[in-house]
Write a protein that binds this DNA or RNA. Sequence first.
DNA 1: CTTGACCCTGCCCCTGGGGCAGGGTTCGAG
DNA 2: CTCGAACCCTGCCCCAGGGGCAGGGTCAAG
Lengths: 235, 235
Amino acid sequence: MITIGQLANYAGVTIKAVRHYHERGLLAEPPRDASGYRRYSAAHAVDLIKIKTLAEAGVPLARIKELLAADPDRFAAAVAEIDRNLQERAAELQRTRERIARLGAGDRLFVSPEVADFLDRLRGIGVSERGVRMERDMWILLQSVSPEQAADWIADKREAIGDPGFQALYVEYDAAFDWSPDDPRLSELADRARRWLAGRGTRSGPAPDPTVIRLVATATGVSPAWDRLAEIARR
Amino acid sequence: MITIGQLANYAGVTIKAVRHYHERGLLAEPPRDASGYRRYSAAHAVDLIKIKTLAEAGVPLARIKELLAADPDRFAAAVAEIDRNLQERAAELQRTRERIARLGAGDRLFVSPEVADFLDRLRGIGVSERGVRMERDMWILLQSVSPEQAADWIADKREAIGDPGFQALYVEYDAAFDWSPDDPRLSELADRARRWLAGRGTRSGPAPDPTVIRLVATATGVSPAWDRLAEIARR
DNA sequence: CTTGACCCTGCCCCTGGGGCAGGGTTCGAG
DNA sequence: CTCGAACCCTGCCCCAGGGGCAGGGTCAAG
């Protein structure tokens, strides 16, 4: 007849946990000795080790209680299921590890692979880091507001970025960020953009979501030159 | 500028979790619009995805808060450590799986391998299931009261069980459980046991712990014949 | 007789949120 | 213009699985 401390020590749990299991009805309360101390038998030790083993496997205490009361067949079935669960958790852990590894490096964690690819291409043709970051932020917002629309747009953009004309336009837009709104090059740039769009023909695509329109509009307003470009384009 | 719902959806967390991260100071509170709604930017989305990724890896929120504030070097170091942690957890999971699998079958989970082995040998020489179970329970209690003493004793017993004389004695003791305390075979059995012990010579071993003595004494008292045997032995 | 190691109950604390109440807002459809 | 659905707000209590501490009793050895 052992004490709670010896029992806990043998099973490798804390005294507190043992009492917790009593409260939850997982482990039967043993008889008390003359001074009110709990006195345990080997049967309790066996039960406690079962409880601990299942608890370590992540089985909720309420479920453990059921299991201990179940017949051996159902117990075995439940154990098999718990094992499957454990296996799945191991796989999940592996996936988490991969994403953790990518946390530090690059933007690929924050946008879809297509967008990440597009951003890489922008860098490749000489767009400034600031420009790439703004573009990335735009896509993040776009993807959260309307993922399908974002998918459509990125497909379109990825196609366009292969065109040297578009590349040149993009780089110049990027540079124009810092220009004065009175810069004479602006109207010429707007004109070239209009002609490129026209030469590409009308792209039907789905009707743009008004929320998206508003979003893109909100996102501007940081560069006077870009505002001016937008104004010219509206005419 | 997106709403809390869009942000949560994009990052794959619940709205509740986002607000929770605000409360904990993990994610900066964004500006509110005219009606008091939170309005998020892409920077928040980036932060939130970092938080979620780390949280999924089991990093405590308080630690995540520190990490986000740390410089990239320390961040990278921490990420490496988290990864090591994850790897260890995967291994731990594997070990848990093995123990879970053994939950249903056999006693090996509840006693040391040496004792489990000894119990198997008892079964092998014909000791009853009840006898083996009593022996097992005795060892469980013994191991929880005094692991070193148990280790000494089991080494001794494992050696003795190789002796055919001891085997015969053990089997007869097992059978004697149900005998009447007046059975004439009892004194003859006690005599044989005494002679076997004498023939084996005095084993020194460490002084027996009084707690252990009391324990073994408590464990008896269920079989009148065994009590009688103990009484004969004391003379 | 004291000292340290145990044991008892009862209470509040933690994490990482979930759920619900009881409101206000926004947006598209009828 | 109004209605309902779908959002959003704060505030509150709840869960598991215990940890920690208070305030007390007990036991064995020196």
